[in-house]
Amino acid sequence: MLNALRELYRYRELLWTLVLRELRVRYKNSYLGFFWSLIVPLVTVAVLTIVFKRVMGMAIPNYSAYVLAAFLPWMYFQTALLDSSQSVLAQIQLVKKVYFPREVLPLAAVLANLVHFLLALVVFFVYLLGYVGAPLLPSVALLPVLVFFQTLLIAGLSLFISCLNVFYEDTKYIVSIGLQLMFYLVPVIYFSEQVYHAQLVSPEWQRWVYVVYHLNPIAMLMTAYRKVLLPPITVQQVGAVQQQSFTALPMDWGLLATACMVSALTFAAGYAFFNKRKWDFAEQP
């Protein structure tokens, strides 16, 4: 693995060129260009806010900011995985002719999406400070740590998925279904506090359900993004039957550390998996 990383470092210029190429190509033929990657989350969040606030009755001030704080990292996760699943196969002709570390292909797809995510975060802060008028929390200093570990997690999964997709093209369909289901298993449209107080769960099990739910590293990262970027709130759920309100839970540092560790391990495992098979790519008929 160290040798592979050293070889990757030698080809860093290729990696960077691929990232630039990906960024250039994506919106080459559209008038609004990069703005599309902002319009998509903004429209989605607007719709989610209307539905959940007006129709479902989430009586939370600045609900949209809380949705956006989790939705942007979710978009990063989703689009990076979908883009990278095809990355090796799309360049198979090149792979069959030229020597280069194969991992640059999925990694470039991930990094291009990271650039989009960072730009979207800038817009998020403009929205937060300008429109919502929320204060900037000191915990925002932790944001780079979250972005770093999320990127490790995404890169690890991407290496795994892009490699598998060369041999079994079903992979990309499985990934897109998996992502659709995963969307409901992470706190984007709801809050992790609601998981803690879920009606099905008896009080003595609350803590356990909360922990198990957050063992999924991407769920924990989403929760962490919210807690780091935005002040804690009391979640008000105006249901048809009864009105409930849940006070904000503090950040669970143990669970966050676990999520970071799982992300790092995912990267190591994904890279090892990829390395073991990357010289078989060119032999695929």
Partner: peptide, 18 residues
């Protein structure tokens, strides 16, 4: 190794680097 949507120049860079 060429991308149809990129200019000749951009493709030269990519091809040379790869």
């Amino acid at each position: 190794g060429f991308h149809p949507d990129l200019t000749g120049l951009e493709n030269v860079y990519f091809n040379g680097i790869i």
